[in-house]
């Protein structure tokens, strides 16, 4: 019973972080119809921004917004300079279908290489604002700590903010309109190009939060080659696809499903299934519903 509770709590916390990463991927997909493989690289870069802020100000609560703003700025820059050129240059010929995938993979390599050049490959440390030692019930220690609670709260607040932005504001309306049909949105006066850049920066910011919390929830150390970031790359992506790529709620559900299932597999079957479990989950779900849990059938032709 106690083990079951622990497994669920670990799964939910991990799932919440995956949800953020999945949200970033969904935001980019909705605004530009590109799957951004570089998202985890951008999250890593933002985490390094956060680390620099931490070194200077020694406060997580300054580091987090710095990472978010940095992540948003980098994402906007990439969209403005790089993606627009890509759309213009390689939208014809046999490459058209794969160009965005390949280009963002190149971007991932470039970002990782630049990070390793500037900060080196060694681990750097990031300390959370509250302790990661679990709450105790009687003589047992839960796998749920103040830090994990904080993670969950942050994710919930951010998701609520994003939902309000999308459903209640004019900007959200134009974001949804450009995702639905760029051509019609442009005709009705939506500045589609601006909206795209905005979608990328929102994604950059939520990726940054995912990166920061992934690091402090792990052992606090991170590096370009650390396992936490490979996991973030894969999991965010799988969560987004499980959720169907089209909606924020899908991203959240995808993240939680992935987090919980992986947590149960690791606890009850074998801990060496760490990397193969997400793949199997993805295969099973795609066999049942090729368009993801919350997906539109036509969307998978995108």
């Amino acid at each position: 019973m106690f083990q079951l509770l622990n497994t669920i709590l670990i799964g939910i916390t991990a799932g919440a972080i995956y949800s953020l990463m999945a949200t970033a991927i969904v935001l980019v997909w909705r605004s530009t119809r590109v799957i951004n493989f570089a998202q985890a690289g951008m999250a890593l870069l933002s985490t390094y921004f956060g680390y620099e802020a931490m070194v200077h100000f020694n406060s997580f609560w300054i580091a987090l917004p710095v990472a978010m703003v940095g992540g948003a700025a980098v994402a906007a820059l990439i969209e403005l300079v790089f993606m627009r050129l890509l759309v213009k240059r390689s939208s014809t010929g046999p490459i058209a279908a794969v160009a965005p995938i390949i280009a963002t993979l190149g971007l991932l390599g470039l970002i990782k290489g630049l990070i390793s050049t500037f900060w080196g490959g060694a681990d750097v440390r990031l300390v959370g604002p509250v302790t990661n030692i679990g709450y105790s019930i009687g003589d047992k220690t839960l796998a749920f700590s103040p830090l994990k609670l904080l993670t969950l709260c942050t994710v919930v607040v951010l998701m609520l903010l994003l939902t309000v932005l999308f459903q209640k504001s004019n900007i959200g309306l134009s974001l949804r309109a450009s995702a639905y049909s760029p051509e019609i949105a442009r005709l009705s006066g939506v500045k589609v190009d601006f909206v795209r850049t905005l979608g990328w920066s929102l994604a950059g910011a939520s990726g940054a939060v995912a990166g920061m919390f992934q690091t402090v929830n792990g052992n606090g150390a991170f590096s370009p080659e650390s396992i936490e970031f490979s996991l973030l790359l894969i999991s965010g992506f799988i969560a987004a696809i499980i959720g169907g790529l089209e909606s924020l709620i899908g991203a959240v559900i995808g993240g939680l499903v992935l987090g919980l299932v992986v947590s149960f597999v690791l606890m009850y079957i074998s801990s060496s299934l760490f990397f193969i479990a997400p793949f199997l989950i993805l295969l099973i779900i795609l066999f049942i519903r090729p368009q993801g849990i919350i997906g539109v059938k036509a969307a998978r032709r995108g």
């Binding site: 992506f237 987004a240 696809i241 990397f275 793949f279 199997l280 998978r300």
Partner: peptide, 18 residues
């Protein structure tokens, strides 16, 4: 059964998992 991003994702997960 899959296309574009879904296929890329599945094969990516395979490359890491297998």
């Amino acid at each position: 059964r899959l296309s574009g991003p879904y296929l890329a994702g599945t094969t990516l997960a395979l490359a890491i998992g297998l």
